[in-house]
């Protein structure tokens, strides 16, 4: 592992990005080959997660780079968001219904999820 992580000659940041891209690429290939309903990056994330369980030292090595990427995760959605503005007219005559549905159901889904999580966690805690 030391050879792969420290002495390969690549600067750490570039090595870490290479690792992340390699997992994404593997995820894309698996997603397409097996025609899975999951996107490549999500499969790549799952593969990296299991790889980290096998090689814990890899986690320590790529933590700084992944932290930088995730701290500014919002930025990465800006280009897609700009694309949406041009399509807002697609809401058309259903605009009010869709806006209400998006806001209402997002609030309901967050509430249902968080109350279930907290409720079940409390029940399990009591039964122990």
């Amino acid at each position: 592992m030391d050879v792969a992580l420290g002495n390969s000659g690549l600067p750490p940041m570039i090595l870490h990005l290479t690792i992340l891209l390699a997992f994404q690429l593997t995820g894309e290939v698996i997603s397409r080959l097996l025609e899975l309903p999951l996107p490549g990056p999500v499969i790549g994330m799952t593969l990296l997660f299991f790889t980290l369980m096998i090689f814990p030292r890899l986690a320590a090595a790529i933590t700084p780079t992944s932290r930088v990427l995730l701290a500014h995760l919002s930025l990465l959605f800006v280009p897609a968001g700009v694309g949406v503005v041009g399509h807002l007219d697609r809401f058309g005559s259903d605009g009010l219904a869709l806006a209400t549905a998006v806001i209402g159901s997002t609030a309901l889904a967050i509430s249902a999820g968080v109350l279930t999580f907290a409720g079940v966690a409390r029940m399990l805690g009591k039964s122990k």
Partner: peptide
């Protein structure tokens, strides 16, 4: 138009893939 904009913005958009993979690190932590 959006196509022209995206020629520049695609470099930011592209990083969504590796950032999603990087979610494995806090998961593992």
């Amino acid at each position: 138009n959006y196509a022209t904009y995206f020629e520049g913005a695609q470099f930011v958009h592209f990083m969504l893939g590796p950032a999603t993979v990087a979610l494995a690190v806090p998961l593992y932590a």
